[in-house]
Simulated scan of single mutants.
Amino acid sequence: MKICLFGSGSNEVDEKYLKLGYELGQMIADNNHCLVFGGGNDGMMGSVARGVADNDGFIQAIIPDWMTRFERLFNECDNIIYTRSMDERKKKFIKKSDAFIITAGGIGTLDEVFEVITLKKLRCHNKPIIILNAYNFYDPLLSMIDDMIKENTIPENNRDLFYVVDTVDEVFEYLDGYDFENDDVYDI
């Protein structure tokens, strides 16, 4: 399975998240999955990629060619796809991935997350989206979504477009049980 990672590329990410990221990468490799990610060497991206690389997994990076001027590229990628824009990058993430895992991240991560959730809602893909809410990182975001449901700005079933877990083990339990052939219908 090709698993797309969305997460921070910041050098300032707390060590507890980096350790978790490495564990996630190790599990991706141990389960013979491929990592698809933004190519960054630092933060959650670099931590997960190191976990994959150190355990002989396959790594595919997708990065805008201009971004390498200010973001270090993880140097153990097996394949690198260069794009011209962030939009093209996100389209390739969606096309080349079978599942999405969201780890601690920033503005770019939120952009990517909401794009894949929106496209799932619009039935443009049927892929699992898993928010790894370790250390309650995404609690404020999840609370906001629940408030939006309460205020009727989004339908309640939109909460079913993604799955929230607290541990790396739960990520793979969910993926192992995911019905990739489902024909769910969502309210648009």
Rank of each mutant, 00 (worst) to 15 (best):
F6P: 13
G7I: 10
S10P: 12
E12W: 10
D14C: 10
G21K: 09
Y22Q: 11
Y22P: 11
Y22N: 13
E23T: 15
M27I: 06
M27C: 11
M27K: 15
I28Q: 06
A29K: 08
N32I: 11
H33L: 04
C34P: 10
L35C: 02
V36E: 02
F37H: 12
G38I: 08
G38M: 03
G39I: 07
D42M: 12
G43D: 08
M44N: 03
M45D: 11
M45T: 13
M45Y: 12
S47M: 03
V48S: 06
V52F: 00
F58H: 15
P64T: 10
W66P: 12
M67Y: 09
T68E: 14
L73N: 11
F74Y: 14
F74M: 10
F74W: 08
C77A: 12
D78M: 02
D78I: 00
D87Q: 14
D87V: 14
E88L: 06
K90G: 07
K92W: 00
K95P: 11
K95L: 14
S97D: 03
S97C: 01
S97G: 05
F100A: 01
I102F: 02
A104E: 14
G105R: 06
G105P: 12
G105F: 02
G106A: 04
G108A: 08
G108L: 10
T109A: 01
L110N: 13
E112L: 06
E112F: 04
E115I: 10
E115F: 01
E115V: 11
L119Y: 11
L119F: 09
K120C: 05
K121F: 00
R123L: 11
I130K: 00
I131R: 05
I131T: 08
A134S: 14
N136H: 14
P140G: 03
S143M: 12
M144L: 15
I145G: 02
M148A: 15
K150G: 04
K150R: 09
N152P: 10
T153C: 11
I154M: 01
N158L: 02
R159D: 01
R159P: 05
D160I: 01
Y163W: 11
Y163I: 07
V165S: 04
V165H: 04
D166E: 15
D169S: 15
V171Q: 05
F172L: 03
E173S: 13
D176C: 04
Y178I: 09
F180Q: 06
F180I: 12
F180V: 12
E181G: 05
N182Q: 14
N182H: 15
V185L: 11
